[in-house]
Design a protein around this nucleic acid. Structure first.
Lengths: 250, 250
DNA sequence: CTCCGCGCTATTGTATACATAACGCATACA
DNA sequence: TGTATGCGTTATGTATACAATAGCGCGGAG
């Protein structure tokens, strides 16, 4: 090919996947909209083969939906889809916490979790929390959940949780915050932080049932707050919130 | 292309995916083995592009693993991976059962479930069960679980359970039977059938917690029996069992 | 004026050619 | 004899050409 600029540092497939995901999450492509391969080729700079690979991956990821007659469209989610996804992830994380507690975790492995906890505590001390601090919070929260998942020592479970988390709004508490920059939102984060503390304690004491229960409660809290936030807004526009979370998490 | 026989009834991508999955599950390709695209092209009859798409899908499905330096290999699973997958699926199905119970299900919707139940009862009446009857059992059992999942009315959850079930050994009780054609295996199926009965009863009476608990117990039973079956065999060869289950389920 | 049918166009699905990177082998030098 | 380096072969990643299908619009007929 003559004039196409090729970035050889990452594969074209990955590049296309990241670019398309960005377009979806940032709202350039709206839910229900059909994705044109040709257009995707132009915007991503890759050729059709890697673009198609990326589309397949994004479909498996749950962001796209295959159209029976061919091609893909951006998936649309209902309010219940979202709350179900949050609860689903909470259930999975509950299982992970139980596995961690039952299988035993060394003090050294818990260290990074506790550091996360302390860092979040530090951030939440300022009232009201600043945008920058909130952004850090989202990143730290994601890290905490990822570390906790790892403690299960169960590759299939980790994999499944990763899949469940691919849907950006599945992140338990961050979504609610991103939606509603309400003053009481900080209170919600503080409650969530309490859950984090409890789950670590339960794992340390090898109380599997308690570890599981608190993670499920953690998700249920997020669902309740999602409902609350939605009721305070006439129209829910997911995409800006998704973009906010994702950019902060990266 | 000149002499390539092209079957236009299904897409080449789907054809390749099915063919490759068969090869993996039947044991033609062994765990850890690298899959050669060229070889796959020859055995599936599709060209490289659809073969690559199929490989990507199978990777997302969990049957293949990407090799960092390029290409794919057949994923290998440990005993714990398998038991974790069963418990994982049980947890997800428990959530589905709870959703069904909490959201309410009409008598008409429960009808097909009860038919499944009765059909399985009929099969289990013959002692010892024949191979043909067992094969029918596996199919009916899969249908029961699929129907139950659907009752949750939660597309994200259904999707996730489908993913979890892609790993063939994730099927709660069928695996154990396929492994060990022991006389006591039938007793296990009968206990499982009792679980099925309880979950339907719980859903009818809208007892979410009970519905969830019994599905998780259902999976735990399968895990216990898996451990037992494995202890009775010196070497576990998964693939024949997988093939048995999959062919019976199709 | 409306509805049915035909043909065109645009877009996806498939095949293959080309580029590039990894692996292995052989040879030479220490 | 062992190791390192370079070249060759092979397989993967990418680009593009070709084929087929589905959607759409236009025109004619009732």
């Amino acid at each position: 090919m003559a004039e196409r600029e090729v970035d050889r540092s990452v594969s074209q497939t990955v590049k296309a996947q990241l670019a398309l995901r960005d377009q979806i999450l940032s709202g350039s492509l709206r839910p229900g909209e059909r994705i044109s391969e040709l257009q995707a080729v132009e915007t991503t700079g890759a050729s059709r083969t890697p673009v198609r690979m990326a589309l397949v991956r994004l479909e498996e990821e749950g962001l796209l939906e295959a159209i029976p007659s061919g091609g893909f469209m951006v998936k649309a989610f209902s309010e219940r889809d979202i709350s179900d996804s949050i609860e689903l992830r909470g259930t999975l994380e509950g299982l992970a916490a139980r596995f961690a507690a039952e299988r035993g975790v060394s003090a050294r492995e818990l260290e990074p979790l506790k550091e996360c906890l302390a860092a979040i505590d530090e951030l939440l001390r300022q009232v009201p929390i600043s945008i920058e601090a909130f952004s850090s919070y989202v990143a730290l929260n994601a890290r905490f959940h990822a570390l906790l998942t790892e403690l299960s020592r169960s590759p299939p479970l980790v994999r499944q949780i990763d899949r469940a988390s691919a849907l950006p709004f599945a992140s338990p508490s961050a979504f609610v915050m991103a939606q509603s920059a309400l003053p009481e939102a900080q209170q919600i984060l503080i409650i969530g932080q309490e859950h984090h503390r409890v789950v670590i304690d339960a794992i340390e004491n090898r109380e599997g049932a308690r570890a599981e229960a608190v993670m499920r409660e953690h998700a249920r809290l997020a669902v309740r707050n999602l409902r609350l936030a939605l009721r305070n807004r006439t129209h829910l526009d997911l995409l800006p919130a998704l973009a906010l979370i994702k950019t902060a998490t990266d």
